[in-house]
Write a protein that binds this DNA or RNA. Structure first.
Lengths: 368, 368
DNA sequence: ACTGCGTGTTAATGCGCATTACCTAATGCG
DNA sequence: CGCATTAGGTAATGCGCATTAACACGCAGT
């Protein structure tokens, strides 16, 4: 290795602090200002007043001037090491590349994250799960780099519980977006599907409906279960008949939900249908198709509601009664929670309320 | 004069290394394996053989076992501080928030980046320009956090030269994607528009065209200038008439490029038109519209070419003669360059060749 | 036997910063 | 006036890791 010709110097491998190389350090600011490095740190971090160790105005000024004239910028790695914080928040997405795509479902969420992070004085650092790169030792690998930040948000349902559990066990501040009970002690934020679904049912009951049917897919995600629970809660609260008969479950709604079936239900007293929302929107799609096929007028002869937002390609159809997941708010809440955890707060789970959407697909039941 | 603090313990604020708290450190692995921390570092980094200081097989095994049983994972911040490297590559995108526009999404580029990074043993960390958050001291702020990584790629034409220059001046390894001459000493990779454009003209000349016209927008980006230069070079090389008459420049091609005008050019001996590619694709769009409007048969009566790829919404039209920017290759090359710079290589600029695309919009000139 | 040399391993050091214990005036106060 | 307090600042220390000088131990050569 040939680097500097000055004979020997610093034992470590060594960019010289001398001459004109590399960023200035606090030590150099200190020298220029005629104070100690510690004072520089105190002044620049503003921690002097915060901790009741005030630094006199003239000294402050000297330090700040020196820092500015040298163009001092802190080293985030060193900050993190020394103080266990560098005001960086990680955002980990398990999707292949990072969702820079606006159509991507995470996008609105990220908007909220970004705003709240800025409000709390944090910068963001993004990670993706794809990289299977280097990292010699651990092998655990991918998740490890989030430790660069003070804490990390995790998006995506495919979060591997074991790796996450590892971070949690190490006391690293983590918040998962979307309810997630798996690793004990994991903090999360989730939308309150139960209340929102109940509210939809209550609204239908308020319009006069006496029999309401839930159409759901054959999917056992917690989000689906929550919706069903809210639905049944709503029926009970409105004094409507619940039980298994109030739920129609199908692995292939498009096939099972025929126009005939719809007519039969109507004849049987059902006047409103509620569809679960899923990735594919299959339940909602099938419901609408069947109603159309049966030649029924939507708010007039039958009322429809959707427990969530319609899929993008149906966005210009009539707005369904239902609720919207407040994704930006969810993101903001996640950041708030994470900030609290970094500050030593507890690892709690939090629900964020969804916004009820009246829509145009529900009205009073037809009077035959 | 103060040395012993017999009563107290660690002066720093202190998560205990004791009991069962937090990640294990190399020191604990060392203790368990009955070796020194230095040995652990050597073994885990594999640097023992690399530096010709081999560690004996039994010792290696002990260390590796201990590390595995404790679940040791390295602290990326500490690695970076101590060694000036942590095998992380930054990718900085200057787009506002998380980019809003899908069309010139960086996606294909990122694919190449990701692959090559993995191949080189690096993990990725992503940044965006938006965050205007905390960062006490500097004020320079946003760009600073890239220092967490060993080096950083920069995407986007809006790269502020001064901030970038700062990083470059500090000796931080940086590679900009897209030619960028501004800060002296900035490394970059860019597509070779000059050669690619020349090749297109040569191809047209080879088909027998004697007068070719370039349609460009009123935009002075270096990418546009390069295309024009390549175009003119190509004319010269083919012995065709160049000069200002060979270039039609318009701030609003859709308005200025009328069917009549096209006919006039044809009457004047022009038999092929070449459009510049831009974000909007306005030149190409206008050219096609005018030719259609004039009722001209495209490969038959007039030949067209595009110096780039057609906009997404015109993707299913006829494939224009032109060239494709090898975005994944560009990304890969950028990573290679960055890795080289981290390894101490020079800050060079590199061109990546574009792929000629014959397409179906060009043929021999009409024989009147 | 002493030197030379190769091989393993450890002690010591520092990366850049935050933090704490301590030190020295300059007060306050009964 | 004697002591406690406050204001203002500094020296020392360590975060977790990588790096290297130095040491310890054979084993050959002369």
């Amino acid at each position: 290795m040939a680097k500097e010709a000055a004979g020997r110097e610093r034992p470590g491998r060594a960019p010289a602090p001398a001459g004109r190389r590399g960023r200035p350090r606090q030590a150099e600011v200190a020298r220029l200002a005629g104070v100690s490095q510690a004072t520089v740190s105190l002044v620049l971090s503003g921690r002097d007043i915060a901790t009741g160790r005030p630094i006199s105005a003239p000294t402050r000024a000297k330090v700040l001037d020196a820092a500015r004239s040298l163009g001092y910028v802190p080293d985030p790695a060193a900050s993190r090491l020394a103080a266990a914080r560098n005001n960086l928040l990680g955002v980990f997405s398990f999707t292949a590349t990072f969702p820079t795509d606006v159509r991507h479902s995470y996008y609105p969420f990220l908007v909220g994250v970004e705003q709240e992070a800025a409000a709390q004085g944090y910068d963001l650092v993004l990670f993706t799960g794809s990289s299977t790169g280097g990292a010699g030792a651990g092998g655990t690998g991918a998740l490890n780099r989030v430790r660069l930040a003070d804490g990390c948000l995790f998006l995506g349902r495919h979060a591997p519980s074991d790796e996450l559990g590892r971070l949690v066990a190490d006391g690293f501040p983590v918040v998962h977006v979307g309810r997630h009970d798996e690793p004990e002690g994991l903090a999360w934020v989730g939308a309150d599907y139960v209340s929102a679904s109940r509210e939809v049912v209550t609204a239908l009951a308020g319009l006069g409906h006496r029999r309401v049917l839930l159409v759901r897919e054959d999917d056992d995600a917690p989000a689906s279960a929550d919706r069903e629970r809210g639905f049944l809660d709503g029926l009970a609260a409105s004094g409507l008949p619940g039980g298994p008969g109030a739920v129609f479950r199908s692995g292939d709604p498009r096939r099972d939900l025929t126009a005939d079936r719809i007519r039969a239900w109507l004849a049987d007293g059902v006047s409103a249908f509620v569809a679960e929302e899923t990735d594919t929107g299959a339940a909602w799609r099938a419901l609408r198709a069947a109603v159309d096929e049966a030649g029924l007028d939507c708010p007039g002869q039958v009322s429809l509601a959707l427990l969530g937002s319609p899929p993008a390609d149906l966005a210009d159809g009539p707005v369904p009664m239902g609720f919207d997941i407040p994704r930006p708010a969810l993101g903001a809440e996640a950041v708030r929670l994470l900030a609290a955890r970094i500050g030593g707060g507890p690892a709690v789970g939090t629900f964020v309320a969804c916004a009820f959407r009246p829509g145009t697909t529900a009205g009073p039941p037809a009077t035959p």
